[in-house]
Design a protein around this nucleic acid. Sequence first.
RNA 1: GGUGAGGUGGGUGAGCGGCUCAAACCAGUAGUUUGCUAAACUGCCGUACGGGUUAAACUGUACCGAGGGUUCGAAUCCCUCCCUCACCGCCA
Length: 423
Amino acid sequence: MLQVSVLKQKPDWVKERLAVKNFKQLELVDEIIALDDERKKLQSEFDALQSKINASSKDIGKLMAAKNINEANGLKASVAEWKASLEPIKQQSAEVEKKLNDTLVLLPNLPSESVPKGFSADDNLNIKEGGAKPELAADALPHWELAKKYKLIDFELGTKITGSGFPIYTGNGARLQRALIQYFLDYNGEAGYKEIIPPFMVNADSAFATGQLPDKEGQMYFVTEDQFYLIPTSEVPVTNMYRDVILKQDELPIKMTAYSPCFRREAGSYGKDVRGLNRLHQFEKVEIVQIVQAEKSYEVLDEMVAHVEGLLQSLQLPYRILRLCGGDMGFASALTYDFEVFSAAQKRWLEVSSVSNFESYQTNRLKCRYKNAEGKMQLAHTLNGSSLALPRILACILENNQTENSIKMPAPLKDYFKGEINQ
RNA sequence: GGUGAGGUGGGUGAGCGGCUCAAACCAGUAGUUUGCUAAACUGCCGUACGGGUUAAACUGUACCGAGGGUUCGAAUCCCUCCCUCACCGCCA
């Protein structure tokens, strides 16, 4: 969440930035400022009274020791009175604080200055394209047909076992998926990311700290019996490893990579978007996460973008990089680059990675701080990105690399996928 | 799941109603001293939210797993929950 101090220092600037994200309730900024002023006032009153009570309690102890019972009893009566007047302040204070918090979490992160204005995916800024689109035969098949032809994925069987959006990978399909995961993890590991296998369910505190709650409540699967959320991305458990942690500056940056299945309810999706592997309820993803010094986060964002780009280049897939506009960005992000690969048979771009700088939006909730060079406590910055999401990569490899009776393997997979996909 | 023992500052660990604004030791840090390595000694050494200041100093409140309660006063007593460890049971 945002820091109240920032709202207070530059309320107009905050509103202007929120407007770029098409956030409508700008009056909340003023409400929060007023609530914080009230909170301070109440706390001062509370502290002063409590201080008096504490001092008197000590005096009572001394009077009792000196057997000065009458005076002690007199003081007890005064303390009782003060305590009574403390109660309403305490209650009011709790109310104000709750309201302040509840309101503050409604504000999304502020987009950085370089975020283009806009309302939808159409307004995203295409900043780079790379890789050549393949020339496919006229009768080239979409990946769901290829999956059937080579017996790689069984969508119908997944529907029987669970429901739509839960495909079953079989034989070479499963092996190719595993090969890709392995390759991605190794690629990330070589760049200094420490490998993590996190829990695939998290508690509400964790979902809250990375910003999925309250924003994405309805998009996560929830296990009512134990009050756990199935992770929509390993960003959640991995970033939360640093919840309530104070770091030393020289421990930064912290670089982690994790493979996990991701679970998303995707309520409201339909049509060609959900065909085949395009959009699933369960999919696999390898994620990269960094926790960094505040001043360095944009430098690191560029580095992570280059890292993901290198991975796509190595797979020889046609890709483009978009800088997301205010309206298309995530709630917690300050700047996001999306990577899309061109699905040659479907003739459409598919998002395969989203790399974001959250600045201190997550760490303010996480309470993840570090002592800077001056010894001052400072919120760290978090970043994460997919490196990469599996299904759409798989879809593109199948479609783009198809020949009449085989699928050609990208060069880096030679060491990971032994065998061939052919008829 | 059962039974028992516990959860105290970065770590170990004392305290079990007011003499604790949480002892001591270790680690960390600054300094003093001694040819070097090293040792000894001295000081400092939590977080959050307030007040205060240009910034500090200084100062108020809260925090001893979490939340309630008893009391003038709670790390300390009571209740509920969570977690850890040990043993037993079950199990990949």
